[in-house]
Design a protein around this nucleic acid. Structure first.
Length: 308
DNA sequence: CTCGATCCCTGGACGC
DNA sequence: TGCGTCCAGGGATCGA
């Protein structure tokens, strides 16, 4: 569930709380979500967390092997091929945050990084849909290259090219991390509603106007969500243990059956491109031939236990 | 090329 | 109350 705004929020928190710290030791427990566990055990101890960035839905803990603790050494990350980083994807339920070492381990604590100030950076993830990987040099560069443009940085031209570059439906395009990195189900639905575009529209069927609008609304929504520290549905909390507030601003996500804030029609729920999708059937006109393909009549599970 | 289906995993919600 | 079942989510993968 953590998407771009949530990951950005966590990354900023960690940048403030653990950047500059050195990793003293690593303890791995469950490792089935780690690319190469032994590489983590081998490479991480002794490395300094130079800074924490967001990359799509990943957090990138940039690492350096400078020996001293001088803060000014932090500024210079190797810009050559020597870069190394710990990639962390929070999946659905991942949480990466510093803890006091004496604090008892929470259930599902799979990784512990002991830091040089006595604290522990702990990764907790009940469902283990997350991913963790130590990568460096060309391997790191190649991994990052798999992903598309950052939705906050992408130009209108590139956005248009990417989003219309496939016959896939717009919902699928928005969620495809090789097209755009960082957009997930919530912000896809929210931005499509705001831009009045039906999720089942084919990418190439979008007009230039559609695409320009969609980019602008997506960016506005993402920025607003970052400002509010993300959406806390289910149990998302950031690196300080704080919940986000953006879920209170959702216009369609999790609002099926409720009234559209724009026109009053009932928000519909359906499956588009294999994912649950929320939209207004009046504001967001269905494409021709979108004969309600597979209506899921049955009751859905909890769409989030947001405390509204 | 794009699609749906399936798996991964746990816990929370729901039905009985 | 307790147990079984369903389902969310992102991403990989496989076959149609």
């Amino acid at each position: 569930m953590p998407e771009l705004p949530e990951v950005e929020t966590v990354a900023r928190g960690l940048q403030g709380s653990v950047a500059g710290r050195r990793i003293v030791s690593v303890i791995l427990r469950k490792v089935d979500f780690i690319d190469d566990p032994s590489a983590m055990e081998r490479e991480l101890p002794g490395k300094r967390i130079a800074r924490v960035e967001r990359f799509g839905k990943f957090m990138l803990l940039r690492l350096t092997k400078d020996a001293d603790g001088n803060a000014h050494a932090m500024g210079s990350i190797a810009l050559n091929g020597n870069s190394e980083a710990l990639l962390v994807h929070l999946g659905m339920t991942g949480n990466l945050a510093p803890h006091h070492a004496e604090q008892p381990l929470a259930k599902h604590t799979h990784v512990t990084f002991a830091l040089d100030d006595g604290r522990e950076l702990r990764y907790i993830d009940p469902r283990r849909f997350g991913r963790m990987a130590y990568l460096s040099g060309k391997t790191l560069a190649a991994e990052l290259q798999r992903f598309g443009a950052d939705p906050l940085l992408v130009t209108p031209e590139e956005f248009a090219t990417r989003i219309r570059g496939s016959k896939a439906r717009i919902k699928a395009q928005l969620l495809d991390q090789s097209v755009l990195r960082g957009v997930g189900n919530i912000y896809a639905d929210e931005s499509l509603w705001k831009a009045k575009i039906h999720p089942a529209r084919a990418g190439p069927s979008l007009t230039l106007n559609d695409v320009v609008r969609l980019r602008k609304e997506l960016q506005k929504i993402l920025l607003k969500a970052i400002e509010m520290r993300g959406s806390s549905i289910s149990d998302f909390v950031d690196a300080e243990g704080l919940a986000g507030d953006y879920q209170q601003h959702h216009k369609v996500y999790g609002r099926d059956g409720k009234k559209c804030f724009r026109c009053g029609a009932k928000i519909k729920w359906t499956v588009v491109a294999g994912r649950s999708s929320h939209f207004c059937p009046v504001c967001q006109r269905a494409p021709r031939g979108n004969a309600s393909r597979r209506k899921k009549t049955k009751r859905r599970g909890p769409v989030g236990t947001s405390k509204r």
